[in-house]
Amino acid sequence: MAGTTIPADDGAAAPAKRPDWLRRRLDVLESSEEAEGGIGPGAVYVWELPVRITHWAIVITIVILAVTGAYIHGPFLVPSSPIEASTQMASIRFIHELSAIVFTVAIGLRFYWGFVGNRYANWRAIIPHNRAQLRCLAEMGRYYVFLRRVPVPMTGHNLLAGLAYTVVSLILFFQVATGMILFGWIINVGPAAWLTTIVAWIPGNIQTVRMLHYLATFLFIAFMIHHVYSAILVDIEERNGVMTSIFTGFKNIRADSTADDLGLCNPPQGIEPTAGGADAPKA
């Protein structure tokens, strides 16, 4: 839809940023999925495959990282025999580091997808940055404190969730950064030695990095409790299949009945534009 003649700063050029090979690959994946999905009429393809893959990769690695990290913080397992050769701590650290690499790659891919993904995955739909979005955010806040009867209907993320994901993303980046510093502290050769140099500028030195890395893990666990609860809650309240959508990618929802697709929350313009989204914003 976007040709080379369109200037780069035009929002309509955004989908063209996907490399051709990637677009072709996705077209195949998406069409096959749509063909065999058995999705009812009016279903909207919301979460593209990379969004779902990175979501579950992050979920699985966070669980592995939290459990192995808890062991590394305070080893709670007993080796089978004190006489036998054992690599318990070494193995668990290896699993932790391997998972951290997968975790980092998944976050990097999702970050990239925030620029090339569909309108629901785009950063403009997630990070609240204009007045209409802030109104939607406030409405969602009123829903959570029982001042509003139903959630703001959204095809993609609601803006309160978007704000939460923005904050969580910052913590994710923070966790990757502190983890890399701790890793560089162990390696301490080549480019990793540069990470050790950073440590000298941190008040409290490496111990502060360790403490913050540990503390942030608890924030993820707290977030997961809230996240799963909210997903179940919205699934029950809206009956739009949000819980299954993170597996299938489809929501049983009519795009012409939601606030974001109607332009009420100022959806990102020019990205897969729909008829309803053309006249936004109204603020």
């Binding site: 209409a132 109104r135 939607c136 409405e139 009123r142 001042l147 509003r148 009867r149 139903v150 703001v152 209907p153 959204m154 809206e238 009945s257 939601t258 606030a259 109607l262 009420l264 929350c265």
Partner: peptide, 16 residues
């Protein structure tokens, strides 16, 4: 009704 006259309000009425 808190939902009336707010963003998504019209749509909310429709889904309920």
């Amino acid at each position: 009704d808190a939902g009336a006259g707010t963003p998504g309000g019209a749509a909310a009425g429709g889904t309920n």
